[in-house]
Simulated assay, not measured.
Amino acid sequence: MTLSTIGYVRLWDASYLNPVTKIPLIHTNENVCLSMNSKVNLYAVGSQAHISIVDPRTSSIVHEIDSVDEGWGVRSLNFDDHIITTGGGYGRLSFYDMRAQSYLTFNTSNDESSVTCNYKETGSGWLNAIYTLSYDESGTMLFTGGGPLQLGLKGSHATIWS
């Protein structure tokens, strides 16, 4: 499957390099990332404010998820088992549970005034988008990397989560 910037995903026959079908996406702004869950044969597509779950067997979108990054874009995805790990344009790391159809939640601090939210912050910086993420073979450590979302800004970040 390939992703276009004009709002389609295309399924290909890899044996002959022929297109099989073209599936239109509902959310077409800033489609920049795609991830496959080979166990259940589903794809996740990230856009400016949503994650679309595509089933290539039916050539349709089977689920839509709002991004936690408030319109700053889904910039990276990892879709494994029933969890979708999302790196956002606002520098947030989130985990969507397909079985529960909700984001995992976290406490923001350890004291009595803690607030629950559905993302982890990558750290300080001005719009440090997460452009890449990858789990180790055991699935217990996660690497994220990225940098500024806005053109003209400089810098980069790398984080290992355990």
Score class of each variant (00 low, 15 high):
Glu70Tyr: 05
Lys154Asn: 10
Ile84Ser: 01
Gln101Lys: 14
Lys39Phe: 12
Cys117Trp: 07
Thr5Asn: 15
Met1Asn: 13
Gly152Ser: 11
Asn110Ile: 13
Thr159Ala: 02
Met98Lys: 09
Leu11His: 08
Gly147Phe: 09
Asn31Thr: 15
Val74Gly: 01
Val62Met: 10
Arg75His: 02
Val40Lys: 13
Tyr90Gln: 01
Tyr43Met: 13
Ile51Met: 04
Leu153Ser: 10
Ser94Gln: 01
Gly139Asp: 03
Val115Gln: 14
Met141Cys: 13
Ile130Gln: 07
Thr105Glu: 15
Thr122Gly: 04
Gly7Val: 03
Phe143Asp: 01
Gly87Ser: 00
Arg75Gln: 13
Val68Gly: 01
Ser35Cys: 07
Leu34Ser: 02
Phe143Cys: 11
Gly123Ile: 05
Thr28Asp: 04
Asp13Cys: 08
Ser156Glu: 00
Ile23Met: 13
Tyr96Asn: 07
Gly89His: 10
Ser134Ala: 09
Glu137Cys: 11
Gly89Asn: 10
Met1Ala: 15
Met98Leu: 15
Glu30His: 10
Ser134Asp: 12
Asp55Gly: 05
Asn37Lys: 10
His50Ala: 00
Leu34Cys: 12
Glu70Phe: 04
Gly91Arg: 09
Ser52Gln: 15
Asn29Gly: 00
Val32Lys: 12
Ser138Ile: 08
Glu112Phe: 15
Thr140Gln: 10
Pro24Glu: 14
Gly88Ala: 03
Asp136Arg: 06
Asn118Ile: 07
Leu77Val: 09
Asp97Met: 10
Leu133Tyr: 03
Lys39Asp: 04
Ser67His: 06
Leu3Tyr: 12
Thr144Asp: 03
Pro56Asn: 07
Ile23Asn: 10
Gly123Thr: 11
Asn128Phe: 04
Leu42Ala: 04
Thr58Ala: 07
Phe79Arg: 09
Gln101Phe: 06
Gly7Trp: 12
Gly46Pro: 10
Ser76Leu: 09
Tyr8Val: 15
His63Thr: 08
Ser156Arg: 05
Val62Lys: 02
Val9Trp: 10
Ile61Gly: 00
Lys154Cys: 10
Ser114Gln: 15
Arg99His: 00
Ile26Met: 12
Trp12Ala: 11
Gly123Tyr: 01
Gly46Ile: 03
Tyr16Ser: 13
Thr58Gly: 00
Ile26Asn: 11
Leu3Met: 13
Tyr119Val: 02
Thr159Gln: 06
Leu142Asp: 09
Leu25Phe: 12
Leu149Trp: 03
Thr86Ala: 12
Asn31His: 11
Leu42Cys: 08
Ile65Ala: 02
Gly147Ile: 06
Ala49Tyr: 03
Asn37Glu: 03
Ser47Arg: 02
Glu70Asp: 06
Leu104Asn: 12
Tyr103Glu: 13
Cys117Val: 14
Val115Lys: 15
Gly145Asp: 02
Asn78Arg: 02
Ser113Ala: 14
Arg99Val: 09
